[in-house]
Structure formats: C-alpha cells, structure tokens
C-alpha cells in the first residue's frame, strides 16, 4: 500500500516536472529562435539552419534594426504614451466607478450599461468612422490625440474598479463624511489608496495592451519619422526590409526588452495584480 503510494508519488513528480519543462520549452522556443537568428550575420543566416547556434556573437543586426526602425524615438514615444494613458485610465476609471458604485442618481443604470455594452462594440470595424472623428477633432498625427483615443476606448479599467468598489465597505466613506470630509476628499484621501490592488491590475492589463497596440498607432500616428512607437516601429520591417529575418528578429527582441525588464522587476506585483482582477468574475 505505502509502496504503491510512493510509486504513485514519484510518477506524479516526474509527470509534473516533465510537463512543466515541456511547457516552458514550448513557451520559449519561438523566442529563442529569434535570439539565435538575430545573432547571426546575414551570410551565416543564409547558410545555416535556423536553429543552429551562431558562430559568433554578431550584434550588427541589433544595431541596424535599432537605427533603421528609429527605436530610440519609438521608445520615448511609447514611454510617454504609456505613462499618460495609465495615469488617465486609472483616474477616469476609478472616478467613474466611485460614483457609479457609491451614489444613486437618475441615469446611473444607463451610464453603467453604456460602459458595459461598449466592450461589445467591434473596435476594428469602427476604425473608419473613428478616423473621421479624430480628424474633425484635429487629433491625427498627434501623440495627445492618440492618448485620448486610447483612454476613450478604455472599458476594462472601469469594469475592474467597479468590481473592486463592491468589496469596499460603504461605512468607510460614511464615517469620513460624518467627520466633515468632502466627497472629493473621501475619494482622493481614503478610497484611492485602498484601491491599490485594483490599480495594479488595471496598470498591467492596460499597460500590456497600450505598449503593444499597433493597429491604431499605425493609423493615427502617420508621421513615422517622428511619431513611431515601439509596436509600430516593427512595421519598418514589413516594407523594404521584407523578410530579412535576422533584422526582424533583432527588432522584435528590442521591442520586447523593456517589457521583459519591467516584468522581471515587478513579477510579484504583476501576478498579484492579475489575480486581483480575477477573483470576482
């Protein structure tokens, strides 16, 4: 009996680690192939199998990709967009969720449903009509315009904040009000700090989405010499550079690096944040 259990336990351990190893391998292989390819010289790339290790550490592809796709500008733009979008979506989302959750006023249900329903709208199909609106507002070819658009089409953060508010007891604000605090005060001084886990969740979901957004950035930030972002810098490689995979791979890896660094530094918060968003469905 115990021997059987022991065997079972060992077998389970083997299966467990084997499956973990296999899955990690699957997750990593496409990216590793990129690293291998990016490190090869063009000649080497042409002559060897794609999975064959490079002979030397050739960094020329990275340099060329970085320069030709204008990635320094791209990084700065992406950074600005990311910071502002995160700041605004957190503020707008939390503010809206606050009033939707804490006050009852005529039209509350309507506003709430408007937001929930908006998540069903087919964004890509509406790009043309959105384009005209952006144009009429003079927001094309401008980073602020792009930022406004990203905040304007932001539904997730509101939903997450609403969920979170439902778990914050009402008594908190009420006692503060009794103490003479204004509603603005309650929100900024008492509730906002308590929302930290939800803020992290929103920042992760919105952050990943914003950093990687390419469809709208390509459409609205047309002057690519000035307004390129990390994601759209990769478009450079669909054009004249065609399928020169060692350059493309280098470009992909460069755009990946900032995300990877943030991920490694904030692993714990990221997991916790994502989990916080999931607890209540």
């Amino acid at each position: 009996m115990t021997a059987k259990m022991k065997i079972g336990k060992i077998a389970w351990t083997i299966i467990k680690y084997a499956s973990l190893l296999l899955m990690s391998f699957i997750a990593v292989v496409p990216v590793v192939s990129c690293v291998i390819t990016a490190l090869k010289t063009p000649e080497e790339y042409a002559q060897t199998n794609v999975m064959e290790m490079p002979q030397t550490f050739y960094l020329g592809n990275f340099k060329e990709a970085f320069v030709s796709a204008n990635m320094l500008t791209a990084f700065m733009n992406s950074l600005i967009v990311l910071v502002v979008v995160l700041l605004l979506s957190v503020m707008f989302g939390a503010m809206l969720a606050y009033i939707l959750n804490r006050f009852s006023f005529p039209g509350r249900g309507l506003v709430r449903n408007l937001f929930l329903f908006a998540s069903l709208l087919p964004g890509i199909a509406m790009q043309v009509t959105t384009y005209k609106i952006m144009y009429n507002l003079g927001l094309i070819n401008s980073i602020p315009g792009y930022i406004i658009l990203l905040c304007g089409t932001d539904i997730i953060s509101v939903t997450i904040f609403i969920q979170f508010f439902e778990n914050l007891p009402n008594s908190l604000d009420e006692s503060a009000i009794m103490d003479g605090c204004t509603y603005f005060g309650v929100f900024f001084k008492i509730l906002l700090p308590l929302l930290k886990p939800a803020i992290v969740t929103v920042m992760i979901l919105k952050g990943v989405g914003t950093y990687n957004e390419y469809y709208m950035a390509n459409l609205y930030l047309q002057d690519k010499s000035r307004l390129v972002t990390m994601a759209t810098s990769l478009y450079k490689f669909t054009g004249p550079l065609g399928n020169q995979y060692n350059l493309i791979c280098a470009g992909v890896l460069i755009t990946l690096t900032p995300a990877l660094i943030v991920f490694i530094l904030c692993q714990k918060q990221i997991y916790a944040g994502l989990a916080a968003g999931s607890v209540k469905g």
């Binding site: 496409p30 990129c34 995300a259």
Partner: peptide
C-alpha cells in the same frame, strides 16, 4: 517562462 508570451505584441507575434 509560461506567462511571458503574454507580453509580446500582436505584430511581433505575426513575425515570430
């Protein structure tokens, strides 16, 4: 390692 692919952008995934 398993989580990491989530961070890659759609256009990069196309290339990869």
């Amino acid at each position: 390692l398993i989580f990491f692919p989530y961070l890659i952008s759609g256009i990069a995934i196309g290339f990869i």
